[in-house]
């Protein structure tokens, strides 16, 4: 009991120390933090770890990219302290954690926007509706929807060429879930690549192309791509920082998460890192092309995490 109180105090003082990141009398922490999971979340976690290292050089943070599913497999065996996830934890993964008696806390850290794109020479597409996207991508469209004018009558009688992320990616899972209605279900006759830069090159060189991928890849290739506003019944909306943050650009944006193991959350370096994550995610997510949550959401998540740390420590 006494030992637990000490731990609790240590954790609290750390939270406090992290709050005044400018103050000079910081506790020097040491130890290591193991992180694995989604390659989508990786750039953000990497950025946070890099900045955290400037403050706490003795904490060794390692990050793997086994994918969201692969990351949860390791997390569920207690092999990692934090898991990066581009979706919520699945039932089967919750079961795995229960089996091994692993408790955890999930925290949204930013939004990842998905963009629908065409070639800049494409003068006919001004916007696209969610129904039209469904008509293009659903499994029944295979070998049926082949021309632009089958989607909207005024569009030209030309072949449509589709580009999308590979079926193993979280982006594909999410797109099919919100557009087609079933995760992982789509037509198979499109150019797929796990590497979004390949999709950028494909759409760049093909006047009749249409594709989707992470917004960050559009931000880096604005000159060679044309962004298509998506209409979900309330008029066409372009994905921007504002429309994603205030959720008017829907349904093609998703929150990304980190999951923290409760045993790890009793270690001061992990607590300090997660607090640091929530405080710096707003600035850092912009730097790497993601969209931050609203500031009050970060404050809320900080509080929730504090409660989580307190309850697990008291147990």
């Amino acid at each position: 009991m006494k030992k637990n109180n000490v731990l609790f105090l240590a954790a609290l003082s750390l939270i406090f120390a992290a709050c005044n990141s400018k103050s000079t009398d910081k506790t020097t922490l040491s130890g290591s933090i193991k992180i694995d999971g989604s390659s989508t979340v990786y750039p953000l976690t990497e950025a946070v770890a890099e900045e955290f290292r400037a403050e706490q050089p003795k904490v060794d943070i390692t990050i793997g990219v086994s994918g969201t599913g692969g990351g949860f497999k390791k997390f569920g065996r207690g092999e990692t302290d934090i898991s990066d996830a581009s979706r919520l934890i699945k039932d089967s993964e919750i079961e795995l954690c229960k089996e091994k008696n692993i408790h955890y806390h999930g925290i949204p850290v930013a939004y990842d926007g998905m963009a629908v794109l065409v070639n800049p020479a494409n003068h006919w597409v001004k916007d696209i509706t969610v129904e039209e996207l469904k008509k293009i991508w659903e499994p029944e469209a295979q070998n049926v929807i082949k021309k632009w004018n089958q989607i909207r009558a005024e569009w030209p009688n030309e072949e449509i060429h589709l580009y999308g992320p590979g079926v193993a990616s979280g982006t594909y899972d999410y797109f099919t879930e919100v557009i087609v209605g079933k995760s992982g279900s789509s037509r198979g006759d499109f150019t797929a690549s796990e590497d979004d830069n390949v999709l950028v090159q494909g759409i760049k060189g093909d006047k009749f192309a249409l594709g989707f991928f992470g917004l960050a890849y559009y931000e880096e290739n604005k000159e060679s791509l044309k962004l298509v506003p998506v209409d979900n019944g309330n008029g066409p909306v372009s994905p921007t920082f504002e429309t994603i943050k205030n959720k008017t650009y829907s349904p093609l944006s998703r929150p990304i998460y980190i999951y923290v193991n409760s045993t790890a959350a009793q270690r001061p370096e992990v607590v300090a890192f997660v607090n640091f994550y929530l405080k710096s995610a707003s600035v850092l997510s912009k730097e790497i092309g993601y969209i931050p949550l609203a500031d009050e959401l970060y404050a809320e998540e900080l509080k929730k995490f504090e409660t989580f740390v307190n309850t697990t420590t008291k147990k």
């Binding site: 990786y42 976690t45 890099e50 390692t62």
Partner: peptide, 12 residues
């Protein structure tokens, strides 16, 4: 090595 668990970010 990725399958075995080699990492992407190792700052040491």
């Amino acid at each position: 090595l990725i399958v075995v668990g080699a990492l992407a970010y190792v700052p040491f």
